[in-house]
Design a protein around this nucleic acid. Structure first.
Lengths: 342, 342
DNA sequence: GTGAAAGCGCTAACAG
DNA sequence: CTGTTAGCGCTTTCAC
């Protein structure tokens, strides 16, 4: 039972006194095509099984210039939103018979660039990239006849690459409108990482909804600069000091909302009696929070699915012009975290 | 700017009219060792940068018999517990300069076996495996002088492989004791996948705590057979019909607890007034649930960290006997989901 | 200071 | 029905 130093075609061939070619052909299912004798075939198969032969992917990839592997770059795999996408991408990819090399960029553009270089050196056939989203210089390499890529969640208007994400603009607009229709006027907006496309579109949706109802945009109600929990916590604390008059919060991520919840609890403010809140990203637990949370659900499974499709479209038909961006609709899930004001 | 079909050493060598050897030596930082002239060196470097040279990992791996890659096999990456482990493993691995090939086994032993074969063919240098845990036949290949592996979370008593997990026995015992000390006598136990080591140890902890207090084990209070949410929901529903007298629930995972929460809400049962609950796996949101949840926290970051250490110990010193199992302590986080009975 | 040659394990074109 | 040969891109031994 050979373990680490593995059996090779040559070894089997030598044992049987035949050529590697024949062994290769037999084991890659081309026995009938080359009319290899039943006798030879079964002998080869038996020996292969006996010695637990596993073809060397490296040698194969080197020869074929096909690795059957794609890369997946994610800012933070422990974030349930990205984990959901990763899950779907993993399943879809396996259906195509491909493997995944996973890189965690830790929301760091430099690490992201390094990850891409690494994947490129591994000769992956394509990359599903959830970019940090702040700069795009290192993405210019993904040109026309280059490594297939599809951007997920965040993208760059200046670089036209295949993309799938949620319709953040209308998602934020729907949520804000819902708050306004419930009588809210002073709505705080807890942003995520500024300059990233989801954040900017959500911000635009928020502002457009206000404008639609002839409400002014008050910059002192807009705070935050990260999708993380800490940011939600701190910004809520701060906000509560400076603007005691806010009646509602729109949080741009589930993590931000969790941070806000912590701050609100510390300040002994009740939801929705003292303050209303809507959060981006629906999660299983959202329904069982102290006050069940009204959320903007992003279709992350579908996003992962579409990402895989867009990527393999490119891998399988490299000549064809890759498709542009796809925006999937969000869904406002109304629970009890928004109070109807008189 | 060559994209998919990449620059090679030979290409650079030809451009400069020198040998591949020299280019290789320069680019792998051995210039001084071979006393390559400053002139040649800078010419090579410049051209490499200009043509965006990235060494071919496959060729390198084939030649060196080192791929600088490990495998990570996870039952479900969208489960926050496993996502947390994956996150830590990803970071630790990168620190060693290694990449990760991710496989999602979907809690399916056959897929797990297939994943391991795939990783083996990719010539990974080691595997971090969170096994499904029901059977271990396909793991026998990980013998003495074979592919390094470390089992995480679940393991097999009959196969002595390096392992890191939580001390599930005392975790469950602590939780059960806490319930008993708060006056609970009829404590339901919502199990996860039976036959897996975490489940069996938790069950044992539950039973031992009962025994310690001269309480009988009532089999009709033990239900469930999956770590998923559905199971928690259904079993709770069922339990509520047959055993109206239970005063507390011990859920063997965060997902099971979520399902139980759903069932309890439907039955209009309040926590902890009508029924108490403790769940395995602490999560950020646990503190903000309708009733903040008392949980048994598993140190998943530490588990990932230790897994990486145990694996690279083996990779770096293959001759040394690998370490056995490491059990990390759990922590009971008391919140408000347990009522003190008179 | 530099190069020629061999070989990692595999596949495919060509040859019988 | 089977084999010979060449080569994927890289590192390394040996040679000068």
């Amino acid at each position: 039972m050979p373990g680490h130093s593995q059996t090779t075609l040559k070894y089997i061939a030598d044992q049987l006194g035949i050529s590697v070619t024949t062994v290769s052909r037999t084991l890659s299912g081309q026995a009938s095509r080359y009319r290899i004798s039943k006798q030879t075939e079964s002998a080869v198969r038996q020996l292969a099984k006996e010695f637990n032969f596993v073809p060397n992917h490296l040698a194969r990839g080197l020869r074929l210039k096909k690795t059957q592997t794609i890369g997946l770059v994610i800012p933070d795999i422990s974030n349930p939103f990205f984990a959901g996408i990763a899950h779907e991408v993993t399943l879809g990819t396996r259906k195509h018979g491909y493997s995944i090399i996973l890189c965690d960029s830790q929301e760091d553009t430099a690490l992201e660039a390094q990850s891409i270089a690494l994947l490129s050196s591994q000769r992956v056939e394509g990359i599903v990239l959830c970019p940090v989203g702040l700069s795009s210089g290192h993405l210019s390499r993904f040109g026309q006849h280059s490594l297939p890529v599809v951007l997920v969640d965040r993208y760059f208007p200046d670089i036209p690459l295949p993309y799938v994400g949620a319709d953040n603009l209308s998602g934020a607009k729907d949520a804000t409108r819902f708050l306004i229709e419930n009588g809210h006027r002073r709505i705080a907006c807890l942003q995520g990482l500024r300059g990233t496309s989801p954040n900017e579109f959500r911000l635009r949706g928020y502002k457009e909804a206000l404008a639609d109802h002839q409400l002014p945009v008050d910059d002192s109600l807009i705070a935050g600069d990260s999708f993380g929990e800490q940011s939600g916590y701190i910004e809520t604390k701060l906000l509560l000091r400076t603007r005691k008059d806010v009646t509602a919060i729109l949080a741009f991520s589930n993590l931000i909302a969790l941070g806000a919840l912590r701050a609100l609890a510390e300040e002994k403010l009740r939801i929705p009696d003292d303050i209303s809140i809507i959060a981006f990203d629906d999660q299983p637990y959202a329904a069982y929070l102290g006050t069940p949370m009204t959320t903007v659900a992003q279709p992350f499974s579908e996003m992962g699915e579409v990402a895989v499709k867009l990527l393999f479209d490119q891998i399988q038909s490299p000549q064809r012009e890759p498709k542009g961006g796809i925006l999937l609709p969000t869904r406002l899930i109304v629970r009890r975290s928004v109070k109807k004001l008189q």
